[in-house]
Structures are given as C-alpha cells and as structure tokens.
Amino acid sequence: MNIRTLGEIAGASVEEITLTGPGGLSARILTFGARLATLHVPDSTGQLADIIVGHDRLEDWAACTTFAGATCGRYSNRIGQGRFVLDGRVIDLTRNEGANQLHGGPQGFDRKVWRISAASDHAVTLAHTSPDGDMGYPGQLEVRVTYRFDSEGVFCIVMEAETTAPTVVNMVNHAYFNMAGHGSVMAQHLRIAGAHYTAVDDALIPTGEVISVAGGPFDFRTLRPIGQSLPGPMGFDHNFCLSEPLQSFAGEMLRPAAEAVDPVSGRRIAIWTSNPGVQFYSGGYLDESLPGKGGQPIGQFGGFALETQFFPDSPNKPQFPSARLDPGQRYRHVMALDLAPVTS
C-alpha cells in the first residue's frame, strides 16, 4: 500500500492512495472528492495505459469544474427547479445550474476532502459525514466509498450511505474514460445495455417520457463508434434505462450497463451495476482550456462518462425508480469494471 500527501485544499490534507491488482493493474485514488485519478489497464498485447481523463497537479484537480473522477452526491445528476417534495414537505436545495441542482450542489461530495477509514494494497475505503441540511438535504448522512481490485482483476466501486432522517441519495462515480489514453473518443466503440432512454427538456431535466432507442442516434445496443451518429453538436448527456436483469458478477448481484473499446489497441472496459440507469456523457463541453495529463489539453470529446445511477430528477418523477433512503436502511450502489482487453 502506498499513501502520499499531495498538499492541502481549504486547510485539509489531501492524500493519494495507490492500489494494485493482478497483471499489473493499478489505480490512484485521491481523498479530494473521493476521486479516481488513474486506472492503468492492458491492451490486447498487455501494454498498460491510463484510461482516466484528469490532471497531473493537485491545483488543477482543485480547480476542476467537470467533476472528473469524483464521487458525486448526495443526489447526482439533476434535480429540476432545485426542489422536491418528501412526505408532504418541500425540500429546497442549493442550486448550481441555473434553477436546477447538479451533482449535489456547489459544495457536493466532489468538493470535500474525505478521510481514509481502511486501506490495503488492493482496496481503500474513504468516508465522509454530510450534516443535516447539507446543500438543502434532510438528515445527517454517513457515506463511504470503497475502491478495490478483486483477484480476477475486476475493479469495483462500492458506494454506501446511512441517514438519520428520510432523504434521497444517488451517488455516482464521474470518471471520464478514454480507452486510447488521450485524444478524441469519437472513434472509440460503445455498447449500452439499454433499450430506452429518458427524454429531456432544454435544461436536460427529464420530461418523464421514456423513449425507445431503436433506429436512432441513441441506439447503442451493439458496439458502434461514439461519433457515428450524434443527437446534436454537443453529443450525448442522457440517461439510459438498463434492460438486463440482475445476475451474479464479481460476487455481487449486478446487471450489464455498458462496454467501451478502443478498436486500435483492443483496450476495453465492461461496466456492471446494481442501479437501474447509466448516464452517458460524451464530453461535449470539455475544451482546450482544461489541462490534461502529460501537459496535453483535454479538448472537446476528450473523454466520456458512464455514470451508473438512479434516473435524473427521480424525486420529482414518481414513475421512475425511487432514490428514497430512510433511517435503518443502507444505500448501496456497486459499479464494477471488467478490464479484460479484446483478444483476437
């Protein structure tokens, strides 16, 4: 196990933890935002490369407004008008995207320095206490995120929470992936195990309508280039409703969510989740002003996110799967990454 101090953010010491897995797999985790900073995976020849888009310097992570690599919450994605009703009470949230709240608000989990509660060569658990009223949410929330490699080389992210009062919770990992390591992801191939997606308005808030992907730009049911058909100049930022049932994978009950492949190198990830949806964001708002790793700017479409989740705005959409958490219950969200490369 390797832990080193990178510096301070807002007077709190930020640690970096390096995890190792079989076959040379490795990951670096930052306590700032409980974020995934690097993930080195093999191509079809065994050559390792980092597939996580991010930064080299702590000051760039601190200035990050793209949520890169972070654990986001309490409620990730968007809540329309920054409010919802819970047990007859209007819950007003701190807004940070016009009239709406995005990824838990301006001081969400991504802006906090988490504490290390357990660590080994292959796993680390980070913890954070979110007080009652934090960003408008009721109940004190005790949250944990565990990153771990298993013996088969699967990389698991386990997000857990308990509350002191009824609330809503939707924690996600917001890593940006680039299966080639850098450059545009438009020629990389993607499959999403979802036959429907949730329609959105101009502010990206779900309308409540669930639409078939068949025959249009949202149809990723088989592997195809990300850039083959875009719904607009900024690409995708949409929730897909996962179609497959839960099944046993990596010691958990999970469902297939997505698969991404670099056809040049054969580098690949297959994502499984315990949650009902996945947000595919193709990185249309990333740009050249963002400093990437190795001194290279990130650029538009320089990475894509696959955030396994409850659906956006579900507290205001009773027809969507519920994100409610009550005292005595445990929120548990698992996102597992199969890192085995394509073999010919």
Rank of each mutant, 00 (worst) to 15 (best):
I211G: 00
I211A: 05
I211C: 13
S212L: 06
S212D: 15
S212R: 14
V213F: 07
V213E: 05
V213N: 08
A214E: 13
A214C: 00
A214R: 12
A214F: 01
A214H: 08
G215Q: 11
G215D: 12
G215A: 10
G215N: 12
G216E: 08
G216P: 11
G216F: 08
P217K: 08
P217Q: 08
P217D: 12
P217A: 15
P217I: 13
F218R: 04
F218C: 06
F218I: 04
D219A: 12
D219W: 12
D219E: 13
D219K: 13
F220D: 11
F220R: 11
F220V: 12
F220G: 10
R221S: 14
R221V: 09
T222Y: 09
T222C: 09
T222D: 13
T222N: 04
T222I: 11
T222W: 08
T222M: 11
T222E: 15
L223N: 02
L223D: 03
L223E: 13
L223P: 11
R224M: 09
R224K: 13
R224N: 11
R224I: 07
P225Y: 03
P225R: 14
P225E: 14
P225F: 10
I226H: 08
I226S: 06
I226A: 07
I226D: 07
G227M: 04
G227L: 05
G227A: 06
Q228A: 15
Q228R: 08
Q228W: 00
Q228F: 00
Q228S: 11
S229D: 15
S229Y: 03
L230K: 03
L230S: 03
L230I: 07
L230F: 03
L230A: 05
P231K: 04
G232C: 06
G232Y: 06
G232D: 15
G232P: 00
P233G: 09
P233A: 08
P233C: 10
M234A: 13
M234H: 12
M234L: 15
M234V: 13
M234W: 00
G235T: 03
G235I: 01
G235S: 05
G235F: 01
F236A: 01
F236N: 03
F236V: 02
F236I: 02
F236G: 04
F236S: 01
F236C: 02
D237Y: 04
D237I: 05
D237E: 12
H238N: 15
H238K: 03
H238R: 07
H238E: 11
H238V: 10
N239M: 10
N239E: 08
N239S: 15
N239G: 14
N239I: 02
F240Q: 01
F240L: 04
F240C: 02
F240K: 02
F240I: 00
F240H: 08
F240E: 02
F240G: 01
F240P: 03
F240N: 00
C241S: 13
C241N: 04
C241W: 00
C241R: 09
C241K: 00
C241G: 02
L242E: 05
L242W: 10
L242C: 10
L242S: 09
L242P: 06
S243V: 03
S243H: 12
S243A: 15
